[in-house]
């Protein structure tokens, strides 16, 4: 369960208004895609959801409870880059989330508990297509593999909300179809609400059950910072979904099996 409610939310930096008066209500297990011009506050909105930043005014509720003001295990995040731990292997990166939660002092598991965590991690590695790379370090993975791992890392902790900040923005266009399938599969298999910021409108329509467009409605050329962005379009896509889903799967399947990723570097 993760109903997210945003009430009268404003965000200012000094005199610059970034977001003004956002009011939204999201059902459980929604896949919300957020698009908009750069600098229109979509990433800021995501950072507020994450707890990295606090709203200047207004409230953010998850299941009616005010959201914790710092990042926590109820909200997972996948950034565009840098969210893997370079000193841990693929497996190490993946079981870290389990270790941190189950061993509060050492943050490490040993013996049977470690083996159990590894079994769990391996099944997820299999699901995201990284089983063959389990002992490699992040620097030895291609960009697409790194993002798969980062997504797997978040999903293993079973967050109620998964936040994606342009997760496929830095990837080759060729592998995004694959990544889309992966994220939709994970979304279907796990009880989580997804918020995904993207600059790719097509991607937004393709993946989301609801599409938000952030834009500045008012603009004062004398004081460009005076007005913030609002949600200018809020498009429910669920009704279109079944149709699109079939089309999309057909396209994905027609494009053949998963491409193989050679390790770079």
């Amino acid at each position: 369960m993760a109903r997210v409610t945003v009430k009268g939310l404003w965000k200012r930096y000094g005199d610059t208004v970034v977001l003004e008066n956002i009011n939204l209500d999201f059902a459980d297990h929604e896949f919300v895609t957020i698009v908009g011009a750069s600098g229109c506050g979509k990433t800021t909105f995501l950072r507020i959801l994450l707890g990295m930043e606090q709203p200047s005014k207004g409230r953010l509720l998850i299941d009616g409870e005010p959201v914790s003001p710092e990042p926590g295990p109820d909200r997972g995040i996948v950034f565009q880059r840098y969210s893997l731990f370079p000193h841990l292997t693929v497996l190490g990166n993946l079981i870290l989330g389990l270790e941190l939660r189950r061993s509060r002092v050492l943050g490490k598991l040993f013996g049977a508990r470690r083996r159990e965590a590894i079994v769990r991690a391996e099944s997820i590695l299999e699901a995201v297509g990284l089983a063959g790379a389990r002992d490699r370090y992040p620097a030895q993975l291609s960009g697409g593999m790194q993002q798969r791992l980062s997504i797997a890392q978040s999903v293993i902790g079973e967050p109620r909300i998964l936040l994606l900040d342009e997760p496929f923005g830095a990837l080759d266009p060729g592998i995004t179809a694959d990544m889309h399938k992966l994220i939709l599969d994970l979304w279907a298999a796990n009880a989580m609400t997804i918020f995904m910021v993207t600059h790719d409108l097509k991607e937004g329509f393709e993946l989301g059950t609801r599409l938000l467009v952030f834009d500045k409605l008012r603009h004062d050329p004398q004081a460009p910072e005076a007005y913030g962005a609002k949600v200018t379009y809020d498009i429910p896509l669920r009704r279109l979904k079944n149709d699109r889903e079939r089309q999309r799967l057909a396209i994905v399947e027609a494009s053949g099996s998963e491409p193989s990723y050679a390790p770079a570097g």
């Binding site: 994450l50 950034f79 941190l100 980062s150």
Partner: peptide, 19 residues
């Protein structure tokens, strides 16, 4: 990003430093 990610994986301050 790394530190935020670790927090979303449930890390405490102590675990952030040690792990």
């Amino acid at each position: 990003e790394q530190l935020i990610k670790a927090q979303t994986l449930g890390a405490s301050s102590w675990q952030l430093v040690t792990r």
